[in-house]
């Protein structure tokens, strides 16, 4: 029970979104090869074959903006939905617990694309939902459930002694959660939450199917009007890769900054 035995909890909940592990800070890391490699290829393509590559690069920025909008709004909303869901999942109130647990079970069992269709087309057949709004709603509902599980695991990973210490000082349950448990849980869950964010960013490409003009949609518009399929989707893939790698860098930077109390 002394400090040596304090468990170092690390939760791995990921769908394969990669945060490169940089053990040795050599010149060649997987992240640098992928990041600078893809930027180099984009530049080279635009310089040596500006038609169509530079044309494509000029055509898609609106789409990048939309992808960012959907991603950031969905991340913020699903973070709070996830926090509430996680708290609900550990609640001793049976009704709240059941609602949160059922939400997680149901949503995790339905593919995101189906949820997207369901909100846009099925629910949309009763009441008209703008595509952008439907996209954010679907992303938030889906990732809120995933994030809820991450939060639950993070909260449960905090030693029971912390709760007991806080309660014995006179804190109620809400204060204990707010001042003692959540600040510690945030550190534990940052890596898996970061992975969820990256997965969410990539999954926003699905919203192109319901007429949201995101990066992928803009690419398809360009490709179908010019028949440059190979060139267009090469550029689209490279742009997604650059954005994803940047986000993963942000996440690992935040992770490093958030561990001062060791």
């Amino acid at each position: 029970m002394d400090e040596k035995k304090t468990p170092e909890v690390k939760i791995e909940v990921t769908d394969g979104a990669a945060i490169p592990i940089e053990k040795d800070e050599g010149l060649f890391t997987a992240w640098r090869i992928a990041f600078f490699g893809s930027i180099g290829i984009i530049i080279a393509l635009c310089v040596f074959k500006p038609d169509p590559y530079l044309e494509i690069l000029k055509f898609v920025p609106d789409g990048v903006v939309v992808t960012f909008e959907v991603t950031i709004i969905s991340i913020v909303l699903s973070f709070f939905v996830g926090l509430l869901t996680g708290l609900g999942r550990i609640s001793k109130n049976r009704a709240i617990n059941l609602i949160a647990s059922t939400y997680v079970e149901v949503i995790r069992g339905i593919p995101l694309l189906v949820q997207l269709f369901y909100i846009y087309y099925a629910v949309g057949s009763f009441t008209r939902i703008p595509p952008f709004f439907a996209a954010i709603l679907a992303m938030t509902i889906c990732y809120g459930a995933y994030m809820g599980e991450v939060f639950r695991a993070g909260i449960e990973s905090i030693d029971k002694g912390q709760t007991e210490a806080a309660m014995s000082l006179g804190f109620n349950k809400r204060q204990t959660m707010l001042y003692v448990i959540l600040p510690q849980a945030m550190r534990t869950i940052l890596p898996p939450v970061g992975n969820e964010f990256i997965a969410l960013l990539k999954d926003t490409s699905l919203v192109s199917i319901i007429a949201v003009a995101d990066l992928l949609r803009r690419g398809r518009e360009y490709a179908t009007s010019t028949f440059h399929y190979f060139e267009t989707f090469t550029m689209i893939a490279l742009i997604y890769l650059v954005i994803t790698l940047l986000l993963s860098k942000c996440v690992s930077y935040m992770e490093k900054r958030l561990t001062p109390y060791e």
Binding site: M1, D2, G161, P183
Partner: peptide, 8 residues
């Protein structure tokens, strides 16, 4: 027994 100080 296990102190339970707040590590953060």
């Amino acid at each position: 027994q296990s102190f339970n100080l707040f590590p953060h």
